[in-house]
Design a protein around this nucleic acid. Structure first.
Lengths: 229, 229
DNA sequence: CTTTTTCATCAGGAAATTTTCAATAAAAGT
DNA sequence: ACTTTTATTGAAAATTTCCTGATGAAAAAG
């Protein structure tokens, strides 16, 4: 409890209520808390105080969360700073291209204090152990979280089996491009592994089942394509 | 004054008078005091009660202070224990100077109570001030205490074997993140140690048994994941 | 020295994943 | 419209991966 006092967390949200609420809960745990009500002010505060963690609302006036994230990542002194996004439940993830800008976690509103705190703690703990690069990819409809090995859709964690996970990951990495069966084989199965021709189809089906049918388009005679938008 | 009541100090000296004298002064300050009249008994008591501080006379029969210190440092549960040496004024320091095995302070006899107490307090303060990177990790369901090498669940201390402890500690340090078997091996067993493939499974099972099954999720073909919430 | 605990390994079985197969459906070609 | 090719689907087989209980060796405790 006490030892949190060395840790500074910057909260950024345009709603004063949220700032108040989260701030209160974090301070109760002994963290030092800074607050900003838009991205611009956040950036300034971040440079001044170099917080360990920034919790950033995605939707904000003046400078939104993603922009702020991008800017922060440009500042060398803030290289080691953790950034977590705050997103409203049901919000369209496609806007959250911010993960590519290096966000480390995503937290959904409405927020339950206990869960929020434990999420923060886990993040700080994990980071201390191994500063890692962001392994989170957000596309329209869902988030692929390589750390947790899950896909989050409509705020629900969906667990895919290994091959399924690697396959969707590969498709998404080539968003809007057609990938041939050959390519899929070499990337997901490896050069020399030989499996039947229908295998890919079956995996595609399972992914479609679990995540909802759209997004993966069949290009007959060629391959598949993951479509955004 | 009150808050000292949680702190246990082990006094080790072969002279009953000294034990009596120091013990009285410490108890007056609210500390819990244990006494041992040689190194062997001290070691036993230390393991049993895990005191925060051990005050150890250098010259003793059966097992002298330095030997006892060395032994204590070998015990993982006592890793975080402070050890202070008690030396008679004019005693031959040459023995002690070469001795680097982890004593935290030297106190010279004859002892003035006030000075002794303030010395002890400073030592404990220093120890408290640097809780060695938060050596106590609280997660949902239990507490991992690296200082004392125990896990506390529902107010009950659960003893894990060393490998088990290191494994759960590693998993928790990566909360919510999937850790591969590779990672587990290198972190818990070390790069070059080679053990069978099922070994991890068995340890995981033991941990699940002792702590309750949930929390540790297996991601087939990938690894394990500790989940909070 | 004896007892206890820890630890690694193995083998059988359980569970989940991955692949195959066959029947059907949907495009594409003629 | 008919044929051919290619993809989808459901179910089942094959395989991989993991769990479990037992065993013995090694280390620690007594």
């Amino acid at each position: 409890m006490m030892e949190n006092s060395g840790i500074t967390i910057l909260l950024v949200d345009d709603e004063p209520d949220i700032l108040e609420f989260l701030g209160y809960n974090l301070e109760k745990e002994g963290y030092r808390v800074l607050k900003a009500k838009n991205g611009q002010k956040a950036l300034k505060l971040a440079k001044e105080h170099k917080p360990q963690l920034v919790v950033l609302d995605v939707m904000m006036p003046v400078m939104d969360g993603m922009e702020a994230c991008t800017e922060m990542r440009k500042v060398p002194e803030l290289a080691g700073t953790l950034i977590a996004f705050l997103t409203a439940r049901g919000e369209d993830y496609s806007q959250i291209t911010g993960f590519e800008a290096g966000a480390d976690d995503y937290i959904t509103k409405p927020i339950k204090p206990k869960l929020f705190i434990s999420r923060i703690q886990a993040l700080l703990r994990r980071y201390k152990a191994v500063p890692e690069d962001s392994n989170i990819i957000a596309v329209k409809g869902f988030i692929i979280d390589k750390n947790r090995y899950v896909v989050v859709k409509d705020d629900v964690e969906i667990t895919l089996a290994r091959k399924e996970f690697e396959l969707i990951q590969f498709l998404v990495s080539r968003t809007d491009k057609v990938v041939t069966r050959e390519e899929i084989f070499t990337h997901v199965w490896g050069e020399n592994v030989v499996v039947g021709d229908r295998t890919i189809d079956v995996h595609i089906r399972r992914i479609r089942e679990k995540l909802g049918i759209d997004s993966i388009r069949t290009i007959k005679g060629v391959g598949y394509k993951f479509e955004e938008g």
